[in-house]
């Protein structure tokens, strides 16, 4: 009898402390997940109540060329952005790990772009990538290369988005830096005695040891790139609140097309269907990565 009273009191205490999140979860997470699933089967324009249309939104999406274009653009960005983020993250972490004077300063400088307002980053890169006055094409010119019209030529807009986004790769670098510190130093010493060169030391010691971090980073980065919105939005922006698709729809990402449908065309049902497809796609991709990871992730600790 007493035990149950204590338990009940503790449960009440727990509920009281958790109350803000429980409220937020119910109103802003649980209900919206159900609601967006429902809306995805309706025709809904904000002014009239939702009209049940069954699978029509999904059928229309299958025939919507902009939808496929947006999906393809997003895949291209993810397929280039993720390996580059991981590769530069690992390489940069090695450099930042070198024992040089002023090391904390260098680390801070590399991390700094990640806290710059993304809007500032977007407009700054529009200026850097300006084909006439920008520094990127100037540097390319020094190498004897005539720089492209980054934000004008459809085939160059995606490299521009990747470039701008990689400016904020410092977060990944800092995480890898922490991972490198966890690699046991004895392993390197032993390998050096065995005559292993730097490349072989990386391949046989560093890479396996940091592979759990890489798995986590791959998942986080894939999810982020599949949802990429603000960077292309800002680089393509021609009006404040109208997602512009860029030349030849080359900058239209999945999340941008979803935004267009919801807030420019007020097709809330159609956009909800897109949201659910993105959700399921993200889950599927994450699952595939997790299953595939058994082959390359070294589970040394367990």
């Amino acid at each position: 009898m007493r035990m149950t009273t204590i338990r009940r009191r503790r449960a009440l205490t727990g509920l009281a402390f958790a109350a803000p999140f429980l409220m937020g979860f119910a109103i802003f997470i649980a209900y919206p997940i159900g609601a967006s699933a429902f809306y995805s089967f309706t025709d809904f324009n904000l002014f009239q109540s939702p009209d049940w249309v069954g699978l029509q939104n999904y059928e229309r999406l299958a025939q919507d060329s902009s939808f496929w274009k947006a999906l393809a653009n997003t895949f291209v960005l993810t397929a280039t952005g993720v390996p580059l983020s991981i590769g530069i993250g690992i390489a940069g972490a090695h450099l930042l790990n070198l024992p040089v004077r002023g090391q904390p300063l260098f680390r801070a400088l590399v991390y700094l772009p990640t806290i710059v307002p993304v809007v500032v980053g977007g407009y700054l890169w529009r200026w850097m990538l300006n084909s006439q006055y920008g520094f990127i094409n100037y540097f390319l010119g020094l190498l004897g290369i005539t720089g492209p019209g980054w934000l004008v030529q459809p085939e160059w807009t995606k490299p521009a988005i990747v470039l701008m986004t990689l400016w904020t790769v410092g977060g990944t670098m800092i995480i890898y830096l922490a991972a490198l510190k966890d690699v046991p130093g004895e392993l390197y010493e032993a390998a050096e005695i065995d005559g292993a060169g730097p490349f072989s030391r990386f391949l046989h010691i560093t890479w396996p040891t940091i592979s759990p971090v890489t798995l986590f980073q791959v998942i986080v980065n894939v999810i982020a790139w599949l949802q990429i919105f603000t960077q292309p939005y800002l680089l393509a922006q021609t009006r404040l609140n109208n997602a512009s698709s860029g030349p030849g729809e080359s900058m239209l990402t999945y999340a941008m097309y979803l935004f267009q449908n919801a807030f420019s065309f007020l097709k809330m049902g159609y956009a909800s269907a897109m949201a659910w497809i993105l959700f399921l796609l993200t889950l599927a991709v994450t699952l595939v990565i997790l299953i595939g990871s058994r082959r390359w992730v070294h589970d040394g600790a367990r």
């Binding site: 919206p32 609601a35 967006s36 809306y39 599949l226 909800s272 993105l278 959700f279």
Partner: peptide, 22 residues
């Protein structure tokens, strides 16, 4: 629940949350 919410793509809740505020 906290961890699950962290993983959820914000696009899934975007529209209903907008409709609530609206």
């Amino acid at each position: 629940a906290v961890l699950l919410t962290m993983m959820l793509p914000p696009q899934v809740t975007l529209i209903p949350v907008f409709l609530i505020w609206n």
